[in-house]
Every structure is written in structure tokens, then in C-alpha cells.
């Protein structure tokens, strides 16, 4: 994984999200999205450290994770637009993007829910003799969900090869982390005997390095690792906020937060020419992807409950 590869990933996520916000505004995406803008280094760094047989779980703010894991951007756009060619055939949408062929066990819209799912998947893979590591993303808000803390305990007890990636962007929607988390975030994981580290979540190289050692620990049978990646959400919690005029963050705070931009941090490691090449490559890819998605068929309402059961009985 070169500096250029990492830059390509953060740039791809940034430009994907900016285009997706435009599609929300133009009405091509119903319901809005939770933009990942500002947090791109975490998805890029974590996924760069994983191998093809590894798995991830994602969150309501999940486009970055699945793009970094390698999904086809056309199929992600199509999913956000509710098209039949979407990753989930238009049945999941922004908060549920999944691609099992890439080990993406789904984005989960219930905060803190996926940690225990990833732990179970990693345990089961090991039991079946596979060398799989699971990385599970969640935000600082999830640190107050009991089932996630329960998952830390199970993972530590059974030495499950799972990496808990906490994207601490300072807010659970509008609730500041200082008002929500007693003690420290990493200390909660450490209390279960899980090695816990706080890393700069704006720098893809640092996230990659920390994840590589966590992956090494997991593969050598040493169990889970907890990574608190400090970051800042540059945009809204959700695009509804663009109209809602919420005042939980001051303009000064947002400006300060945006001053450490992962795209710029990683971009500065490339020559101007290389960076321009990657930028052009990303735009061409996204132009084509958006075009494919916009041209894709809408699902047939008669099949609204297709896939409800894996083994359908007679349902009325």
C-alpha cells in the first residue's frame, strides 16, 4: 500500500460523499445520508491493513468504509438511489450497504450493534479454520451502548481476532463526547484486558500502521485490539442538518476541526503531478459510476418483499 494508494482512497471517499450530497439535494437520493467527510483517513488506513479473507462491519456513516474495502462506486451510488443494480438491490440504502463478496457484513444503523456481530463472525471463521480478522467500525456514541461493552468482554475472554475501531469525532449526533463518556474511551477497552491505543485519525499512514499491528496481533492468536481514532466530522451528522440550522458546534470550532484535513495531509505526501493524476482518475471513475447508477432500473414494487426469507415458507 503506497502513499498514492492511500491518497486515492481518501480522495475517492471525499469526492463520492460530495457528489452524494449533491444527489440528496437534487432528489436522486431519498432520505439523505450521513456524510463521512473528514473521517476518510480511518476507513482508508484500516481497510488498507486488511487482507482479502478479512471482514468488516460498518455504521450508519458507512460509505467510506465500504469504498475503502473496494466496492464498486457505481453499485454504491445505485444503492443510495434505491436502484436494482445497487449493492443490496436497492433494499438497504445508505445505512445498510453490504457486499458479502468483499467480506462486508453490512453497515448497521443501530449504534453499537455491529461489534458483537463482528465478534461472532470472527470467532466462527476461526472455528472453521479460516485465518480471518474482523474490523468493526463504530463512533464515540457507541461507547455508551451496553451490548458493545458486552462484546469487548466476549472478544477478550475468547481471544477473538477482532479489531474494534472507534471513530471518535467528538459527537454522538449533537451530544459532545465530554458530556457522554465518563472516564476515557480507551480505558473502557483496557478494563477488559484489550490493548487500547489512541491514534491520530486524520492521518491515513498512522491509522494504517496501528491497524497493521492490530491485525498481526489478531492473526497470531493474541485476540482483540481497540483503536480510538480521533477525528472530526466536517459536515453534518446527517444531511437533514443542512436545513435544520443546529447550533451545537460553533463556526470557529468547525473551522478549527477542518484545518486538519486527511485529504490534504495525505495529498501533501505526493508530488503535485501525481496528485493531479489521482484526482483526475477519481473524477473519471465517479463520473462513470454516477452515470451507471442514474441509468439503472428502479426495483419492481411487486418484489418489495423479495429476499425477506432465505428459505421462504408460504407467507401471506
Amino acid at each position: 500500500m503506497t502513499s498514492q494508494d492511500l491518497y486515492r482512497t481518501v480522495r475517492l471517499i471525499r469526492r463520492f460523499e460530495e457528489r452524494a450530497i449533491d444527489f440528496v439535494r437534487s432528489g436522486e437520493i431519498d432520505g439523505g445520508i450521513h456524510p463521512y467527510i473528514g473521517q476518510e483517513a480511518i476507513a482508508a488506513g484500516v481497510c488498507a491493513a486488511l487482507g482479502p479473507s478479512d471482514v468488516i462491519t460498518s455504521t450508519h456513516r458507512g460509505h467510506g468504509h465500504v469504498l475503502a474495502r473496494g466496492v464498486n462506486p457505481a453499485r454504491l451510488f445505485a444503492e443510495l438511489m434505491g436502484r436494482e443494480s445497487g449493492l443490496n438491490k436497492g433494499r438497504g440504502g445508505s445505512m445498510h450497504a453490504a457486499d458479502f463478496s468483499l467480506g462486508i457484513l453490512g453497515a448497521n444503523a443501530i449504534v453499537g450493534a455491529a461489534g458483537s456481530i463482528a465478534t461472532g463472525a470472527a470467532w466462527a471463521a476461526r472455528r472453521q479454520g479460516r485465518d480471518t480478522v474482523a474490523a468493526t467500525f463504530f463512533g464515540d456514541g457507541a461507547m455508551n451502548e451496553g451490548m458493545l461493552l458486552e462484546a469487548f468482554n466476549l472478544a477478550a475472554l475468547w481471544q477473538v481476532p477482532v479489531i474494534f475501531v472507534c471513530e471518535n469525532n467528538g459527537y454522538a449526533t449533537t451530544m459532545p463526547v465530554e458530556s457522554a463518556v465518563a472516564g476515557s474511551v480507551t480505558a473502557r477497552a483496557q478494563a477488559f484486558g484489550i490493548p487500547g491505543f489512541t491514534i491520530d485519525g486524520q492521518d491515513p499512514e498512522k491509522v494504517l500502521a496501528a491497524t497493521k499491528s492490530a491485525v498481526g496481533r489478531a492473526r497470531s492468536g493474541k485476540g482483540p485490539t481497540f483503536l480510538e481514532c480521533t477525528t472530526y466530522r466536517f459536515d453534518a451528522h446527517h444531511t437533514f442538518e443542512h436545513r435544520a440550522r443546529l447550533t451545537y458546534r460553533t463556526t470557529e470550532e468547525v473551522s478549527a476541526g477542518r484545518s486538519r484535513d486527511p485529504v490534504e495531509i495525505q495529498g501533501a505526501r505526493l508530488t503535485a503531478v501525481d496528485r493531479a493524476d489521482v484526482d483526475a482518475e477519481v473524477e473519471a471513475l465517479l463520473d462513470a459510476a454516477a452515470g451507471i447508477a442514474l441509468g439503472s432500473a428502479h426495483p419492481d414494487p411487486a418484489a418489495a418483499l423479495a429476499y425477506l426469507y432465505a428459505s421462504p415458507e408460504v407467507m401471506r
Binding site: V55, F100, L105, A113, A114, G115, S116, I117, A118, T119, G120, A121, A122, W123, A124, A125, Q128, T132, M147, L148, E150, A151, N153, L154
Partner: peptide
């Protein structure tokens, strides 16, 4: 957690 753990194991 163990109910979700089972879901994860089933997915795997």
C-alpha cells in the same frame, strides 16, 4: 451481545 454474536457466526 451473545445474540448478535450468533448472528455474526451465522453470517460466517
Amino acid at each position: 451481545a451473545f445474540t448478535n454474536f450468533a448472528t455474526g457466526a451465522a453470517l460466517a
